[in-house]
Design a protein around this nucleic acid. Structure first.
Lengths: 346, 346
DNA sequence: CTCGTCGTTGGAACCGGTTCCAAACTTGGC
DNA sequence: GCCAAGTTTGGAACCGGTTCCAACGACGAG
């Protein structure tokens, strides 16, 4: 018998490439070549290496590999999960858009400002991921600098920034579309529940409000201040606001909620107060999240899944070296009429 | 002016620790000490280093750091997102359970078998994450070996395996609880829609079915084969199955769906067929996902958020070096009666 | 038989951090 | 003013891969 290295795992931990090399009686460079399917390795040598790999149950450290290659083959999606149920749909699209590529997806929750900071600290140097998809949030300006300096491709979804390509919708048009639908049904007392101006998110709510105002103006209806409310997306917050709204002396006959989540709160408030929907009250949302179907909620659909898919594609393009100019791509909106809107009560 | 290293970023890329050291006129070891808040650095030196760090806008590479430390300060959650809406709730709990720790969470989607394989390839060596939370799925046996060999702490949530600690519920009891509720309401023709035996997931459906059978037996009701169906969780699949079920000559007066997602499909089928719920048909689900509230779905609640929180805590314990024996922790179930179940029609 | 060429191969530098260890520098007591 | 003890400090080895480049062997041609 010829001399073989004694211990299989001298270090006690998982085998390293050097262990494999020693076992196969070759150099580390050769093992690396075999691992990466390089040509120019004698078949007999290759066989010995493969055998050693299997005997040691070896798998290369992706960490060390990334460090050496300066590439991780990972794409990270940064998104606020919970404040935004539609984000899950978007991720579905991202997964789909990435599925044909070599890249793996990692999702990072940035619900709190603290976690947002940590997320960018992990990713803005490009050593945890090769590219970033930032969903429904805006990177702080300091990070914008850093990302661009480090040359990390970054695509925004459901957010807009002049320095990055983005996938979004025309929120003004959407707000107008929703409101016009209500007006066309004969409603004159149309309320709005929007999001408060966000601190570090993209302010889509403001644009939807603008669309609301525009549609009312077009119909010659004055905007009543007490009909325009703001509150976070949390269901119970929207519910409380809706309860106030529906308890006004001259209560609205229709409510446009700037997101489906908030629309659900309105529906709950109406049921509690014994107000019939759509008989006495019409409700329209925005987004068309999955629940909307089950609830029969009328809403303005934005292509959530498609936004993720497009964003992923754009990022892959950028990663492939194609220069992607910071364009603002708008996806189409569509009115989906279900069972929560109807003619204004006489 | 004294001589300073000329180019700020000689490499063109982000600054490295050596650049900082050169700029501050110290060694890399000293910079490292400052970065990590070690004591034993002269204040004046520390100031020079801090200044250099700021001037170069330096941030250490977390990748290189991980490689050197053999620690990532990252915990990975592996879960099938979309086949399982309850997973989102669980992640919410995980985030909460981790929030007080130094660990960051990364979520990895393993919807397809292919992605499951890739996930474990990325993580089973422990160089991408220090610990794993495996949700609603089972690691392949080969990976079990590898994980244990590499000493990577791993906690299962909504799945059970003899070699790992796990957080789960008593599915038999749950199935029994749901079915007994229907029986107590006077139903004798109780159908079941379950999951097909999964290939690489944990088979909770089988246990819930067993509970169903047990409850019927206790009431002296025979299990009718044509009342027991199987289909994936996709809403339209459950819907198709329910449509068949409700078109039987002697159709059931109650359906126990092994998950809320499937229960939703049943509700849709009933509405399409014009069957009143709960007047003519009672429906009970399992899980109590968020939608269940909005739909008024009667269901068996399992503590989804809590499962994530407990799993995270257990994992943190393991990461802190406490030995966590492979215990099977069961969380309590609770019957939540809403508006989709009622007395059996006369 | 010798030389040049090509196919294989291994050593060593590198990716960007951490840390051991020894050397250099302070400081205090005499 | 000198020496021992303690404080700061930097060089170099290490984490585990990839890859450049030089060296080695086999082979065919002259």
């Amino acid at each position: 018998m010829e001399q073989l290295p004694t211990a299989a795992l001298p270090t006690g931990g998982p085998a390293r490439i050097a262990d494999v090399a020693a076992r196969a009686g070759v150099g580390v460079a050769t093992v690396s070549r075999v691992l990466n399917g390089r040509v120019g390795v004698r078949p007999s040598t290759r066989d010995r290496v493969v055998e050693a790999i299997e005997e040691l149950n070896y798998r290369p450290s992706s960490l060390a590999r990334s460090l050496s290659l300066q590439r991780t083959l990972v794409v990270a999606a940064l998104l606020p999960w919970f404040t935004n149920p539609s984000a899950v749909q978007r991720v579905r699209g991202i997964v789909d858009g990435l599925s044909a590529s070599d890249y793996d997806l990692m999702v990072f929750d940035i619900e709190s400002e603290d976690r947002q900071r940590r997320a960018f600290e992990l990713f803005d140097r490009g050593d945890r991921a090769d590219g970033l998809l930032v969903v429904s949030t805006l990177p702080p300006e300091r990070e914008v600098e850093r990302l661009q300096a480090a040359g990390i491709p970054c695509v925004l979804i459901d957010a807009v920034h002049p320095r990055f390509p983005s996938i979004a919708v025309d929120d003004v048009a959407g707000g107008e579309m929703a409101t016009r639908h209500l007006v066309n049904l004969g409603h004159r007392r149309v309320a709005l529940i929007g999001d408060p101006p966000p601190e570090f998110r993209f302010d889509w709510s403001r644009d939807r409000t603008r669309g609301y105002e525009r549609a009312l103006a077009a119909a010659g209806i004055e905007v009543r201040e007490d009909y325009v409310r703001e509150g976070t997306r949390l269901p119970h917050v929207a519910r409380a606001i809706a309860t106030e709204l529906l308890s006004l002396p001259k209560r609205p006959t229709a409510v446009f909620a700037a997101s489906d989540t908030q629309a659900i709160g309105v529906l709950e408030a109406a049921r509690t107060l014994g107000i019939a929907v759509p008989g006495e009250l019409s409700v329209i949302g925005f987004d068309d999240i999955e629940v909307a179907t089950y609830l029969g909620l009328t809403t303005v659909r934005q292509p959530l899944v498609e936004s993720g898919r497009r964003g992923a594609r754009l990022l892959l393009d950028a990663l492939a070296g194609h220069t992607v100019s910071p364009l603002r791509e708008l996806l189409p909106l569509e009115l989906v009429v279900r069972r929560t809107t109807g003619p204004a009560p006489a």
